[in-house]
């Protein structure tokens, strides 16, 4: 994956809780065997509605998706991350992510910014009031800032994920550095497990 250090830009406010991965990318899109071309499927059922926020011209060009609590719950489909990323978002902000979605994000360089509920609500209100609000996410410092409203907050990011995002590291390559340990572990497995 590509390294990511700073995400700077504007955000789309998706002000609802429990946005599951079936909404992010409906199952019809999962039949594809490719890894690209999922941007058209992003929120495809909701996008048919004129008043859906992604159709609002005021938010055109935004590169941050601002969600409510329990964003990305449900299915393990990594296609949800691919769709968000391929549409043009580089980060998603939410007070709480579905765990598989969050994990999948970090494998693709989509920054999951898990902030406290007060920060999430302040950002939601501010972005709804001003679509041009500039937001900066700093992966190195694990901070999210919106200077125009005096907001500066940190988010939860483990050292190992920060390191992988900043350097665009391939997990498989890292794990294969431990191949001796895997070999030796396999030698110690119970015989009934084969």
């Amino acid at each position: 994956m590509e390294p990511v250090a700073i995400v700077q830009g504007t955000a789309v406010p998706l002000d609802r809780s429990d946005v599951d991965t079936d909404q992010i990318i409906p199952s019809d899109w999962l039949k594809r065997v490719e890894r690209t071309g999922f941007e058209k499927g992003l929120f495809s059922e909701w996008r048919d509605g004129e008043d859906f926020v992604l159709n609002n011209e005021d938010y055109a060009g935004a590169n941050i998706l601002l969600g409510g609590p329990n964003f990305g719950t449900g299915s393990s489909r990594e296609h949800a991350v691919w769709a968000i990323q391929q549409y043009g978002f580089a980060a998603v902000i939410s007070p709480r992510f579905g765990p598989i979605f969050k994990n999948n994000s970090t494998k693709n360089g989509l920054v999951p910014v898990e902030v406290d509920i007060e920060t999430a609500e302040a950002l939601m209100a501010a972005v709804q009031a001003d679509p041009t609000l500039e937001i900066t996410i700093d992966v190195e410092r694990a901070t999210v800032e919106a200077p125009a409203i005096g907001l500066s907050s940190t988010f939860d990011l483990s050292e190992s994920i920060r390191h992988r995002l900043l350097n665009g590291l391939d997990d498989i390559g890292l794990t294969l550095q431990q191949v001796d340990k895997i070999d030796s572990f396999e030698g110690s497995r119970p015989s009934y497990m084969a």
Binding site: S76, V81, I100, T175
Partner: peptide, 18 residues
């Protein structure tokens, strides 16, 4: 537990997960 496609590839290649 359920995993995404990147992790599927990881398990296929290494029989482990981080």
């Amino acid at each position: 537990f359920g995993i995404g496609t990147s992790e599927v590839e990881h398990v296929l290649a290494t029989q482990t997960l981080q």
